[in-house]
């Protein structure tokens, strides 16, 4: 699926010629979804931007304005720390998902045989059951007196490990929640890959390892990029994993934004945080699109 995500984005840069006869029908078809997105997405994002220049009124309600106070407040090192932490968590999540997800996609795509579909279904099923309930199950398993620590103690392997309420737990939660979105696009690009390439690579390179890095990895770069996008974006904006598995110092941007809207009662500051998050993503997308375009050219 995700392979088409960047296709669509990259498309903007490309001109595609079509016979003009059917244009009117297509324009008619474009109108309703475009109007919907204009009303409910573009204009609501506009409100966020406008409100980020506002302040909290005397009754505790947000008021529009034209001040940069919220952005000045964000220059406090505390917020910078949260932004850096979120970026580190999201990058770690993406990298771990890639390293863990690739072998799985590889095995299923190239060695799944007739069980390929069943294996993919087996992989997807847990992701269709509640994420929150699965997270909760993990937190009971990994609790200090949970099943896993009991096993460790009973077998004498360890006197108990503190898994929960650590940065590692937050990242693990994020990986667990979205790794399927890494596996699927890589699986898809491995499926599409011409296996003759590997055969040819074997003749050219000596070790299977060299073949893998010289042939297979480049051939599936589009799938990896798709996976990176689908894992990185949700991870960067997440607040659930840090809320349920995090400790005292694992606050992410998502938590900060959520707090401004539901606890701190400072919607303008929350809006400013949201705008900064959007800007950070814009920068990420520019680099991302450059990377996908390079892949497309190589294709």
């Amino acid at each position: 699926m995700s392979l088409q995500v960047e296709d669509a984005l990259v498309d903007l840069a490309k001109e595609k010629r079509r016979s003009p006869t059917r244009t009117r029908l297509w324009n008619v078809l474009l109108a309703p979804p475009a109007l919907w997105m204009l009303v409910f997405f573009i204009s609501s994002v506009t409100i966020v931007v406008l409100l980020s220049f506002g302040h909290v009124g005397d009754t505790g309600k947000p008021v529009f304005g034209f001040s940069l106070d919220n952005y000045k407040a964000l220059s406090d090192p505390v917020y910078l720390k949260v932004f850096i932490r979120s970026a580190v968590f999201a990058i770690a999540t993406t990298a771990i998902s890639l390293v863990l997800g690739y072998p799985v996609a590889y095995t299923i795509a190239l060695h799944g045989g007739k069980y390929k579909n069943a294996l993919i279904a087996f992989l997807v099923i847990p992701f269709f059951a509640s994420y929150l309930i699965r997270m909760y199950a993990w937190s009971t398993l990994l609790a200090d007196e949970g099943l896993i620590n009991q096993l460790l103690r009973d077998t004498g392997l360890s006197s108990g490990i503190r898994f929960l309420n650590t940065p590692g737990a937050v990242i693990a939660g994020l990986v667990y929640g979205s790794i399927v979105f890494m596996v699927l696009p890589i699986y898809a690009s491995l499926e599409r890959m011409d296996t003759a390439l590997i055969e040819a690579g074997k003749d050219l390179y000596h070790s299977p390892l060299q073949t893998f890095f010289a042939v297979t990895v480049p051939a599936t770069r589009a799938g990896m990029l798709g996976g990176v996008l689908l894992v990185f974006l949700p991870a960067l904006g997440d607040f659930v994993s840090a809320q349920l598995l995090g400790g005292p110092s694992t606050y992410m941007i998502g938590n900060l934004i959520q707090q401004q809207f539901f606890e701190g009662q400072n919607q303008p500051l929350g809006s400013a945080l949201t705008v900064v998050l959007m800007l950070a993503l814009l920068i990420f997308m520019v680099f991302y699109l450059r990377a996908t375009q390079r892949v497309n050219r190589e294709k």
């Binding site: 949700p234 960067l236 809207f261 998050l277 993503l281």
Partner: peptide, 12 residues
């Protein structure tokens, strides 16, 4: 929206 974190869409 595909490339927007849900929290942004939610806030908006």
């Amino acid at each position: 929206p595909l490339v927007t974190p849900e929290i942004v869409t939610g806030v908006a």
